[in-house]
């Protein structure tokens, strides 16, 4: 088993606000992230695919194909967007790093046909990230 990772970066804005909370509760729980005008980050996404290298090409999957999938599924959807309002997959959810990573997993998993999606790591800042794995992946996908 070999793990292959590709990294991309995108910039997006978001805010944290739960309409079921009072204004005060929103401020207490979400702090600065509750600013109604939003704020932004440079997100870094690392996508890891696990598989056996093809004996002819020596590749787990063609990086060009992965690049195109990431461009279509992530960049076009999220780059320079306001995540709360412009990404339908996040509608009705707080666009935290955890939720965005999960949505990206769900977008990518069905599109990756060679190898198997192993991990999605999304950095919101260099000091904050979320990892998404297949549930129960400590079996087949484990190193």
């Amino acid at each position: 088993m070999v793990l292959l990772t590709r990294k991309i970066e995108f910039a997006a804005s978001h805010l944290y606000h739960n309409p079921d909370f009072s204004a005060e509760e929103n401020r207490r729980v979400f702090g600065k992230c509750n600013n109604p005008h939003g704020h932004g980050h440079n997100y870094t996404l690392e996508v890891t695919v696990a598989g056996q290298p093809d004996p002819v090409t020596g590749m787990v999957l063609d990086l060009k194909d992965l690049k195109e999938i990431l461009e279509r599924e992530v960049m076009q959807r999220m780059d320079h967007r306001f995540l709360n309002y412009e990404v339908p997959e996040l509608a009705g959810q707080i666009p935290t790093c955890e939720n965005i990573a999960r949505v990206i997993w769900q977008l990518l998993d069905p599109k990756i046909k060679q190898g198997r999606l192993h991990r999605v790591r999304l950095y919101e800042t260099p000091d904050l990230f979320a990892d998404c794995y297949r549930n129960g992946s400590e079996g087949a996908d484990a190193r």
Binding site: N18, P19, D20, A91, G92, Q93, I94, C97, E98, N99, A101, R102, W105, Q106, R121, P126, D127, L128, F129, A130, D131, C132, Y133, R134, N135, S137
Partner: peptide, 19 residues
């Protein structure tokens, strides 16, 4: 908020760096 679609298919970890 919507009870989101996390139904058992993925596992999420949160990572935080300190110095």
């Amino acid at each position: 908020m919507t009870a989101n679609a996390q139904k058992g298919t993925v596992r999420i970890e949160l990572g935080r760096r300190y110095h």
